[in-house]
Design a protein around this nucleic acid. Structure first.
Length: 791
RNA sequence: GCCCGGGUGGUGAAAUUGGUAGACACGCAAGACUUAAAAUCUUGUCGCUUUCGAGCGGUGCCGGUUCGACCCCGGCCCCGGGCACCA
């Protein structure tokens, strides 16, 4: 068990409860450990650690200094959400409607210097590796592939006219160089130097840039807001035509991504088309469909075609033109072919307190890593949080230090790592949790990769991509073998629940736990009204979302454990739905789970004389004469076969269903008249049921098997299907006419085809439905179905 | 907006992955036990029609492929997740 213990929730709780994050965190860990122990999970507690302890995070500090030396960590400016009132950087989730969650102030984009890891150096390997991850869900691999977003294209150079500022050439990337002759404008980000210089003597433009500065730094925000722009009054020279095209500033161009500038071809790109239409910018079509007319009245033509209005490239196909234009640009040194990734380098700096201190020292603008011998840089834990900045930024005793070379005064970094840093390598630390001489030792090479990794789907991209990246970094440092950390991946669905809140002044939301809210619903189960139990006043129904601390919609299974016991809760959770599926929490069915376990218990005690006298040492291929016994044995093994398959494919809800079905069958059977062989079969069945149930409800199985001296049989060796028990000589066939179920037929399993056809056609119901039509063919699925096609 | 999932009875779900739609449960209804209730047990439970044999319709919506579609293909609607500072 690794407690991923740093992060925002602890800071939020600290502000709300006026407790230090460390205390709150460790109390929560203790509570959770108690609960997990009571649930009987098989964690190896000898390998437990918490990421907020220095004996864990010291190693990522060390690793970071290694990355600095290897040139894989670097500093650059990047934008954050700045709350001007609380003087704090806000997480995206702390910004709503452009305002800070505590202060309600309009947020401001602000550039600050931050640490980045060169994950883009590994982009190619991260994509290629996905093909080898055969035991990962295809959906996760697709999401990662799309996230990395490899695209091949051309970077073209547009020279800015009459510019005296730095970077007077605008470099733009395009995957469609064949459309380059259709460029009618360029667009740059609001933070682009060209935009800023153009705004100096243009107040209207200045206002627009300011407006863009109030948007939060989230891609979803950029993509959904109204696309706006303004001309800069600046022009750039088209590299091929030599004509001048206007340069605009647009709020949807990302400053920190690529070159912060894009070329626009409104005739052949939908977003450009809409933008051009809105602002009356020229639309010049240059690619025409191979057959048929070009119609760009209703939208851009984004397919491939044949070039026109493109000078020397006229008449070329898009495919050809992409190649020729790229070559032409390269020849003239006005561009080059490039592979571009959507993936950006990983920003790991956080201007927060509750995280691992970044182990660097700033001396007069230069930054050096803290020497290995001086690690760890320990985070002070005795602090008070007031929501205004990080406490360690106000603690000279923390940040005042000296230059190890000169002894001059220097300043320690007060930013901390992104918490994904901790969660990116904990899986490896489990192999050597006690190692105090190294981050990992030889044991990591022995145990890794992880055979089976389980995590929520919400981690499909970020966490799982960072962990894959870290594994490669650790491999290149010689710490682990192999290229990938996790051989097999199961992505759990999320447990989701209704959210309820009230909006306070300045739009700040206070969330209430569903257990504290009383709802009235209509007959379709929709919530009509929700009121807080404590004051009877209404609350806003916020919709169903993944359970989280920030939305306060989690449920604590503790009261359920207290009332029904761990086995019932485990069984109930396994039975609710398959693990990949998301699940809206509802504990109505928990009583049913408890009832089932009590029935199992009752059945064993009802037949205790049998289990006490005939403990079924080993069933040696019993020769069973009694047909009823053969049937019940077939039923048991039939159910077992399905259950084992479902365990294998991790569909535990149907395993539980199979246990219930088996119990139903055993309860129904009249064992009293089955004689000595009956006792054997009964004991055999009992052991199968207990074994099958053991992983789900271990406590009750252990108790029952101990009571009847069969613990050895239950706890040693896993289950196997006795194929001979499954043998049948009669099967029930489904009979269809034209694909519709019309009849059922009991036949010998090996009935010859011609006999079967005769039998089917003679069937009364079949007769009725083929009357007056001609039988065209008869489809037979052996052992299952017959379909008579007639018309 | 983009990427990834999902949508099946009143509810959670199942369907060996193209072959009987609704297994197993929850809930509900009726009955048994009980002075009564709880617990437990039995029976029924997708909708409509029915001469009680069965018939028709039905897996978000519209269309297609197929002897046959919850499953495959095309278009749409709704819900959940992710979108780089929640983790």
């Amino acid at each position: 068990m690794g407690w991923d213990a740093f992060g925002l929730p602890a800071e939020n709780a600290a502000i709300a409860n006026k407790t230090a994050p460390a205390k709150w965190t460790r109390e929560n860990i203790a509570y959770m450990r108690g609960q997990l122990e009571r649930l009987g999970y098989g964690y190896d507690w000898a390998r437990e650690f918490a990421t907020c302890n220095a004996d864990y995070y010291r190693w990522e500090q060390w690793f970071f200094t290694r990355l600095m030396e290897r040139g894989l960590a670097y500093k650059k400016e990047a934008e954050v959400n700045w709350d001007p009132v609380d003087q704090t950087v806000l997480a995206n989730e702390q910004v709503e409607n452009g305002r800070g969650w505590r202060s309600g102030a309009l947020i401001k984009r602000r550039k600050i210097s931050q640490w980045f890891l060169r994950i883009t150096n590994y982009a190619e390997e991260l994509i290629d590796g996905l093909d080898q991850l055969e035991d990962w869900p295809e959906s996760v691999r697709t999401m990662q592939r799309n996230w990395i977003g490899k695209s091949v294209g051309v970077e073209a150079v547009f020279t800015v006219v009459d510019s005296d500022i730095d970077g007077d050439a605008l470099k733009v990337f395009t995957t469609r160089p064949d459309t380059i002759m259709g460029v009618t404008y360029l667009a740059v980000a609001a933070q682009h130097p060209l935009a800023i210089s153009a705004a100096i003597d243009n107040p209207e433009l200045k206002t627009f840039l300011d407006e863009c500065g109030h948007m939060k730094t989230a891609e979803a925000e950029l993509e959904t807001m109204e696309k706006k722009g303004m001309p800069l009054g600046v022009f750039a020279v088209h590299p091929i035509s030599g004509e001048q095209v206007p340069v605009w500033v647009a709020n949807f161009v990302l400053a920190g991504y690529g070159t912060g500038a894009v070329m626009a071809v409104p005739a052949h790109d939908q977003r450009d088309w809409e933008f051009a239409g809105k602002y009356g910018i020229d639309i010049t079509p240059v690619v025409y469909p191979v057959d048929g007319d070009l119609d760009i009245e209703g939208g851009a033509f984004t397919e491939y075609g044949v070039l026109k209005n493109s000078g020397q490239f006229d008449g070329l196909s898009s495919e050809m033109a992409k190649q020729r234009i790229a070559e032409w640009l390269e020849e003239k040194q006005l561009g080059e072919q490039q592979v571009n990734y959507r993936l950006r380098d990983w920003g790991v700096s956080r201007q927060r307190y509750w995280g691992c201190p970044i182990p660097v020292i700033n001396i007069d603008g230069k930054t050096i890593p803290v020497e290995a011998s001086q690690l760890p840089v320990v985070l002070p834990e005795n602090v008070v949080l007031d929501g205004v900045g990080s406490p360690i930024k106000k603690m000279p005793e923390f940040f005042e230090t000296t230059d190890p070379e000169t002894g001059e005064l220097a300043e320690r970094e007060t930013d901390t790592f992104d918490t994904f840093f901790e969660s990116s390598w904990y899986y490896a630390r489990f192999c050597s949790p006690d190692s105090d001489q190294a981050m990992l030792d030889e044991r990591a090479k022995y145990w890794l990769p992880v055979d089976q990794y389980v995590g929520g789907v919400e981690h499909a991209v970020l966490h799982l991509l960072y962990a894959r990246f870290f594994h490669k970094l650790m491999r290149d440092e010689g710490l682990v073998n192999g290229d990938e950390p996790f051989k097999k991946l199961l992505t759990q669905g999320m447990v989701i629940a209704e959210t309820y809140y009230r909006e306070g002044e300045n739009g700040r939301k206070e969330f209430f736990n569903p257990t504290d809210v009383e709802t009235t619903k209509d007959e379709k189960g929709r919530i009509l009204q929700a009121v807080l139990r404590s004051d009877g006043e209404p609350v806003v129904v916020g919709g169903v979302e993944k359970m989280s601390k920030s939305k306060n919609n989690g449920v604590d299974p503790q009261s359920m454990i207290d009332r029904y016991g761990a086995d019932t809760v485990r069984l109930f959770m396994m039975f609710a739905s398959p693990p990949e599926q998301s699940l809206e929490w509802n504990d109505d069915a928990v009583a049913g789970a408890s009832r089932f376990l009590r029935r199992v218990w009752a059945w064993f005690y009802k037949h205790q004389s049998v289990f006490q006298t005939s403990p079924c040492e080993q069933l040696i291929a019993p020769k069973i004469e009694n047909d009823a016994l053969v049937d019940v044995r077939r039923t048991v093994y039939g159910i077992l076969e399905r259950a084992l398959r479902d365990y294998e494919r991790q569909q535990f809800n149907t395993v539980v269903a199979a246990c219930m079905e088996m119990t139903n069958a055993l309860e129904k059977f009249d064992w009293s008249s089955a004689g000595a062989a009956g006792k054997q079969v009964q004991s055999e069945s009992a052991i199968i049921l207990l074994k099958l149930l053991a992983p789900v409800a271990p406590h009750i199985v252990e108790k029952i098997s101990g009571e009847f001296n069969i613990r050895d049989q239950v706890e040693t060796s896993w289950l196997q299907v006795d194929e001979s028990a499954l043998k049948v000589d009669q099967v029930e066939l489904v009979v269809q006419v034209n694909g519709k179920l019309r009849s059922k037929l009991q036949v010998a399993i090996d009935i010859p085809r011609d006999q079967l056809e005769v039998l089917v056609l003679a069937d009364e119901n079949v007769q009725r439905f083929i009357e007056g039509s001609v039988v065209r063919k008869i489809i037979i699925v052996p052992g299952k179905l017959v379909n008579v096609v007639a018309n």
